[in-house]
Design a protein around this nucleic acid. Structure first.
Length: 664
RNA sequence: AGCGGGGUGGGGUAGCCAGGUUUAACCCGCUGGGCUCAUAACCCAGAGAUCGGUAGUUCAAAUCUACCCCCCGCUACCA
């Protein structure tokens, strides 16, 4: 049973989102399928939660419509990436909803759910309770006027919404009323001991997952609220819960089970899922990024235990570190990174799959750079692997009429080479079973290195004239190795593997596509097709590659003149600038936007400008963006600045114009 | 500040949990050579690292312990 983190389909995932989860899981699932094992790869779209609800409200559409659209888009993208799921479902699936409700009822009946009545501020205008960040007011300790519901920025003390003085709703600014509400809590602390034991004895868990999880338990588990007052989500099944919904994080992880149930339901088998979840011989492997560790090792495990149904706990939770983009964090708003839809417009899926798997962040964060991307693709895929295949196949095309030659008794060199290839195939298998995908892939590419060494040593182009039979032996072996590659590369680069199988004219019969068949030769006399290079070298320079990406983006998002003219761009004069205490990069600005009208802006440029430097400057600002709270401060205006790597420059008019001048 | 992760030849990584099996491995780059079947690809040889620092445990430390320095993430904002 292979599973990967459920993509949150608020937006298209980026490369970093899928390396450790969707893509890694696909490799391992494909491997086990090749081995002929019973394997099921399930996951799905995680579509509940506040960000989606908010986004939908903003667009004025029902959340379901938004997730329908995104789900469809993402399903299509994954297919293009060659991700082969057994079931890719979604948290809106009726099977999932029903399963989650039943599971929580069981947990409730087993006595692991308690309720607590609290008085929470409630905004009568927005018709919602105001937890954490939704409420602000005066800090009762230090008097700071924009303290948030969970913590005061000024003095750092933890707060509760009800303690704030003169509190107000962050969204509409109206004064909340105090209203009693009841929430249902999952009694997580009861599972601290069993969880600790489970994690300590689970030898498969990678370092990062074990250390992190044990630390969380050591610090003390706290009950987790199961219910939310949100509308978008799975209705809580508890008696008296009314229209409360289940918190996404507690619900989506159960999707692993419900997706299995759904898979078998579709096949008309109501019991089939049990062999994957209740049979003690079944193993579950989860592929996730490090941010997701506690939800799998702790929350999921505890929920499964709490049902008392005897579910298998995670056998392995393969959790990767993060992929960075040229030294920076992936960021949609700042356009840092490559998204999986864009990637495919630039290079074929297997280029990306290869690069990502070969640089999979297994022990520490790794950095994407175009230079490394180029290096991996050119040196490994094209020069080492691609060239080995191509030189072998073209030789057979030219000198053996595309038929695999008949060998005589193979010599010591041949035996040694084949042995070494076999060893690498074994290593790759072992490493894949340990989820060490990076190392496994290296072993596979090394097979073509061995092939190249063999050809160079034997010099069959000379043997052709001096000892044709020996040359025939060499190519019998060389094409054998090529066939090995066609099989073992399948989990990593399925498109290329299939293309290679076509070149080798290997029938599509699923029997031949078996890991155990990899090290068996193709029969002599077997006719192959005309060789064609599998890859093209990337010739473009690093800067050109980045430029291509940016150009592609620009051509994609054309803004109508009408939309553009909605922006109120002006020249603003900075009347006052001061740094924001406790923040590392924020400056609070008072800006004259014309006629002496002063507005406040909070800008993230303190690392690049001293406040004094800014005072008196005239610069480009956007006046009519929706105001926003930043670090507890109102920001009504956005200043414009150019960024070139580490250099940030605000935009100043090059002639004297007065504050408030329109920019068009 | 707290918590977590990391610092290994010029660049990128593996090894560390289970210390000796390593003269510290691999890829790129570099230097020299070979080959000419192959997409100027391939192969061989070589130079290049006191494994962030210090102290300790040990017959033996990149690996274990303590302290320190630097980087990154989250807490925690930068539209």
């Amino acid at each position: 049973m292979v599973a990967s983190a459920w993509p949150y389909i608020y937006r298209v995932p980026h490369l970093g989102n899928i390396v450790g989860s969707i893509l890694s899981a696909d490799v391992v699932a494909r491997y086990y399928r090749l081995k002929g094992e019973d394997v099921l790869y399930v996951t799905g779209s995680d579509e509940h939660g506040t960000p989606i609800e908010v986004e939908a409200v903003r667009r004025g559409i029902p959340p379901k419509q938004l997730t329908d659209e995104n789900h469809k888009l993402i399903v299509d993208l994954f297919e293009k990436w060659g991700i082969k799921f057994d079931n890719y479902t979604r948290t809106e699936s009726p099977t999932h909803v029903k399963f989650v409700q039943e599971a929580f009822l069981k947990i409730y009946e087993n006595g692991y759910v308690f309720t607590e009545e609290t008085t929470l501020p409630y905004c009568p205008k927005c018709k919602r309770y105001l937890p954490d960040r939704f409420i602000e007011g005066i800090c009762p300790f230090c008097g700071y006027k924009s303290a948030r519901g969970d913590q005061c920025e000024q003095c750092g003390r933890l707060l509760e919404p009800a303690k704030l003085i003169d509190s107000y709703c962050v969204i509409c600014k109206s004064t909340p009323i105090q209203k009693k509400t009841k929430h249902w809590y999952f009694d997580l602390p009861k599972f601290a001991e069993p969880l600790r034991e489970f994690i300590e004895t689970n030898k498969q868990l990678p370092d990062n997952a074990r250390k992190f999880s044990l630390n969380v338990i050591k610090e003390g588990l706290k009950p987790r609220a199961i219910t939310r007052d949100n509308k978008w989500g799975i209705p809580a099944p508890f008696p008296g819960a009314g229209d409360k919904t289940i918190y996404v994080w507690l619900e989506a992880v159960l999707g692993y089970v419900s997706a299995t149930v759904e898979y078998f339901e579709k096949k008309g088998d109501r019991e089939g899922w049990k062999q994957y979840w209740l049979d003690k011989d079944a193993k579950t492997i989860y592929f996730i990024g490090k941010d997701n560790i506690p939800f799998h090792t702790i929350i999921l495990s505890a929920l499964l235990l709490a049902t008392k149904e005897g579910y298998n706990l995670p056998w392995n939770v393969s959790s990767t570190e993060f992929l960075q983009f040229q030294g920076l964090k992936f960021s949609k708003s700042q356009r840092v990174g490559v998204w999986i839809d864009e990637a495919l417009q630039l290079f074929p899926a297997d280029y990306w799959r290869y690069y990502l798997l070969a640089s999979r962040p297994e022990t520490k964060d790794t950095n994407f750079s175009w230079e490394q991307f180029k290096e991996k693709i050119n040196a490994d895929l094209n020069d080492t692997f691609g060239n080995f295949v191509h030189r072998t196949l073209t030789f057979i095309n030219q000198h053996y009429n595309s038929e695999i030659p008949t060998p005589t008794k193979l010599g010591a060199d041949e035996k040694r080479i084949l042995k070494s290839v076999e060893k690498k195939v074994e290593n790759a298998a072992k490493l894949l079973e340990e989820c060490k995908i990076q190392a496994a892939l290296k072993n596979v590419i090394d097979i073509s290195r061995t092939g190249n060494q063999y050809l160079n040593k034997k010099e069959p182009w000379k043997l052709l004239k001096t000892n044709p039979q020996k040359a025939a032996n060499v190519f019998y072996v060389a094409v054998w190795i090529t066939k090995t590659l066609a099989v073992v590369l399948e989990p990593f680069t399925p498109f290329t593997a299939e293309e290679l199988r076509k070149l080798l004219n290997i029938p599509k019969d699923p029997q031949t596509l078996r890991w155990s068949e990899a090290t068996k030769p193709l029969p002599s006399g077997h006719k192959i097709n005309k060789a064609k290079p599998l890859f093209q070298k990337i010739e473009a320079k690093e800067e050109e590659l980045q430029k291509n990406l940016e150009q592609m983006r620009m051509s994609k998002t054309k803004v109508s003149f009408e939309d553009f003219s909605k922006l109120d761009l002006r020249v603003g004069r900075i009347v006052k600038a001061e740094s924001v205490p406790k923040s590392s990069n924020l400056v609070k600005l008072s800006i004259d936007i014309g006629g002496g009208e002063i507005r406040q802006a909070v800008a993230g440029i303190a690392k690049h400008y001293d406040p004094q430097q800014l005072e008196g400057k005239n610069l480009a600002v956007v006046v009519n963006l929706e105001p926003r709270q930043i670090f507890g401060l109102d920001s009504q205006v956005m200043i414009l600045a150019a960024q070139d790597g580490d250099v940030v420059s605000v935009l100043q008019p090059d002639r004297a114009v007065k504050a408030g001048s329109k920019i068009k």
